[in-house]
Amino acid sequence: MAILEMKHISKAFAGVYANEAVDLSVEKGEIHALLGENGAGKTTLMNILFGIYQADEGEILWKGQSVRFESPGAAIAQGIGMVHQHFSLVKKMTVMDNIILGLEAGGLFLNRTAAREKILDLAARYGLEVDPDAAVYSLSVGQQQRVEILKALYRDVELLILDEPTGVLTPGETEHFFGVLRRLKEEGYAIIIITHRMSEIMSISDRVTILRDGKRVGSLVTAHTNPEELSQAMIGRELKESAGSGGREPGEERLVLSHVSIHRNKKASLLSDVCLAVREGGILGIAGVDGNGQKELAEI
């Protein structure tokens, strides 16, 4: 039996549909991928489920009961958590204070000792190790994501929504993260992962629902499909190989950066000794996990 059913969900902004009569069904103990190009309506649909937006039409059934969440707090109270693409953590506060922020205590004060023990237990149980006393600003992006997941688990959610969760992770962190998801699945959690990465869908998901232009165009069992079929459903046509550049060699250097640095303080640099050259007729790729200096490099 499905723990979640979204039936004929529609949402329009300024007369343009972001979601149009979308159906989605998620079962307990399932990792369900929500696939689509940018602008396909994936995040909008999940924001409706999480109470950020209200659907114009349609119905949400949560554990068999018709619900309408007026706010994220209402969704969390019913057991639905969401980790957004851009984290909502207070950087100057500690991990523990971020996790317990907003919770109501049984008495005047929250039992911080019990809270710490619960956080450490959840972290060890699901492979989300992080120092409860560390300030969030001192953590890597991958560690901050662990805090967001712990915050949801601390509130006893049964369904976890993850919006493009691997976009900020290194390959090694992604593998560890998938291990966390598999542990959660084994314990009966329902998980929705928003993504457009085929390799990740094939590796981690049980089922895939595909959105295109705000509409659901299919729902498939991952083991019975392949990246080619999913790509075609996502973009609405067969994906052809690029003709390429014809083997033209790049020309003279047109832009050169030599030993460029930006010093934030004595302990850390935003950029350190960066050297690169861009040639005429060439394309230079800048690779790195979000937050590792790409923005500063472009601005300088």
Rank of each mutant, 00 (worst) to 15 (best):
V16G: 06
A243E: 14
F177T: 10
L160H: 08
I192P: 01
K267I: 09
G29V: 00
G36V: 06
R248W: 14
D23K: 03
G246M: 04
R237D: 10
E30Q: 11
L150F: 05
G246I: 14
G291F: 01
A40P: 05
E37I: 07
D133F: 10
E296F: 12
Q65N: 13
N98T: 08
H176S: 11
I60G: 02
A135T: 09
G51P: 10
S199I: 09
L184W: 03
L139I: 10
P227W: 00
S88M: 13
T166S: 06
F178A: 01
I99L: 01
R264Y: 13
E164N: 01
L89K: 06
T209Y: 03
K91N: 08
R207C: 09
I31C: 05
T209V: 01
V90R: 03
G41Y: 00
G29F: 03
F87Q: 05
L108Q: 15
I193L: 14
Y189E: 01
E148Q: 07
K7H: 14
A55G: 12
L160T: 11
E299G: 11
L220W: 04
L211Y: 05
N265Y: 02
G251I: 13
H263G: 11
M93Q: 10
L159G: 01
L24F: 00
S203G: 08
I3W: 00
I52R: 06
R183Y: 10
G51C: 10
T170V: 08
T195C: 06
M93W: 07
L61C: 12
Y189N: 00
R207I: 00
K11Y: 02
V274F: 13
G107Q: 04
A105W: 08
C275P: 09
N226D: 15
G236Q: 03
R155H: 06
R116D: 10
F109T: 10
E229S: 11
L270A: 15
E249H: 04
